[in-house]
Design a binder for these strands. Sequence first.
DNA 1: CTGTATCCTTGGAGATACTG
DNA 2: CAGTATCTCCAAGGATACAG
Lengths: 139, 139
Amino acid sequence: METKEKSYPDIFQADCLSRQVLQLVADQWTPLVIYALEGGTMRFGQLLKRIDGISKKMLTQTLRVMERNGLVQRVVYPVVPPVVEYSLTPLGQTLREPMEALRVWAYGHLQEVAHARTTYDQRDQKPIQDEVATLVQQR
Amino acid sequence: METKEKSYPDIFQADCLSRQVLQLVADQWTPLVIYALEGGTMRFGQLLKRIDGISKKMLTQTLRVMERNGLVQRVVYPVVPPVVEYSLTPLGQTLREPMEALRVWAYGHLQEVAHARTTYDQRDQKPIQDEVATLVQQR
DNA sequence: CTGTATCCTTGGAGATACTG
DNA sequence: CAGTATCTCCAAGGATACAG
């Protein structure tokens, strides 16, 4: 009964629930869906157009997972042709703030990341003996 | 010259730099590495033990990408046996706050997500006619 | 319009062995 | 200790066609 009741607290543990929850948003499309739905309800086709590069298959799949985890609500209007609207649930709304922080971070550090990349990519072309030596001395 | 200079601003654009930057942390392991390095410098083997479930290969790969993007610094001490230390760069440090917000969110909504899942998983076993009808009336 | 079903390809990732 | 190299395999995901 008490074998594996609470693996809650340690996010570094593989079977930890908190890790699973963290990784709800740790994929390619979920953050973009959240950003898209911040403005309010959207239909499937609207999301498909808004999120450039996503396929119908991946959008469906992403939305299903998000729905399962309680982040989005899916409302079907049985008319022809079908109308399906997606929106953030109250739980999903609570993600807006942390997600927004991440987006702001991304916008604010474009240059630094780009610069780090070119620096790194050029490093392999050059000798780095001096740098290694310097770093060793730090110890 | 001015063909594709600035695809900066729109994160919904596939080739947008901001999207790439956002997705630096949108994978399974990067957030955990950041959390692990918040406490300070760690060696390769320490990270491997701390982050349960990660393989040597994935840890190496994750660290290399993070290093390339300027999030972590890798310092090699040319001794035998080798010592390699990883730490967050100043740029990586700026990610701590938004990442911490995400972790707090995860911890704070374990129950809700778990509950949403069981509800969703049980839904397919039952008729849902009433709910659909209700939702339709909302329009 | 909003999907599902199927096929098919690619590469992501584990396992294992080897190296400085 | 901290990786790299190689092999292998499964599954993520694109393309396409079809359905309600």
